[in-house]
Amino acid sequence: MTIGSEPVPAAPARAAGAARLLPAATTALAALLTLEPVPLPGYAALTPTLTLMVVYHWTLYRPDLLPPLVLFAVGLGYDLAAGEIVGVTPLLLLLARAAVLRSRPWFIRRGFVWVWAGFAVLAAGILFGQWVIASLLAWRLLGTGAIVFRAALSVALFPLASRLLGYSQQALLGAG
């Protein structure tokens, strides 16, 4: 599975109206799924960063369909619903988007392993950022054990999420 084996087209192919909402809809769904109470011991602390996976995927493949305003709205909705400190999730998602956009040219013509590795770096960075913000707001150093597990679980689940998003992308948005 390679990205950009073809020369980069000048403009993305036009997709049908409703299908263009796919990236925004999957991002919102990922945020809702993150809120799901899963009756597994210790799950709450280890919930994989589903939203980050979706944001990474779409920012890499179709950034035109996932504008920053959507990330802001979804992040804000998540913070309000999860009882998080309002602003943390939009901030992290927007920073993730900026980082991915910046390094996007580098991923052209590279295989999926590199995309996966890119997600690992991003997840580590964002979870670290989350830890820094949470520690600053609580004004003490919080435990880091949960972050390591969360990052590991997210990285392990990324290929599955990426595959599912890739299928939905090809089915609804075509190869563009």
Binding site: M1, P63, V86, G87, L91, L94
Partner: peptide, 29 residues
Amino acid sequence: MTPLTILRRSAAQRAIAPLLVVVSALMII
């Protein structure tokens, strides 16, 4: 997997992301 495409953005679109970052940070504070 589908090829990457070049993202074309206008100046206004480029400005909105940093603006939203600042708004988020302000909301935290």
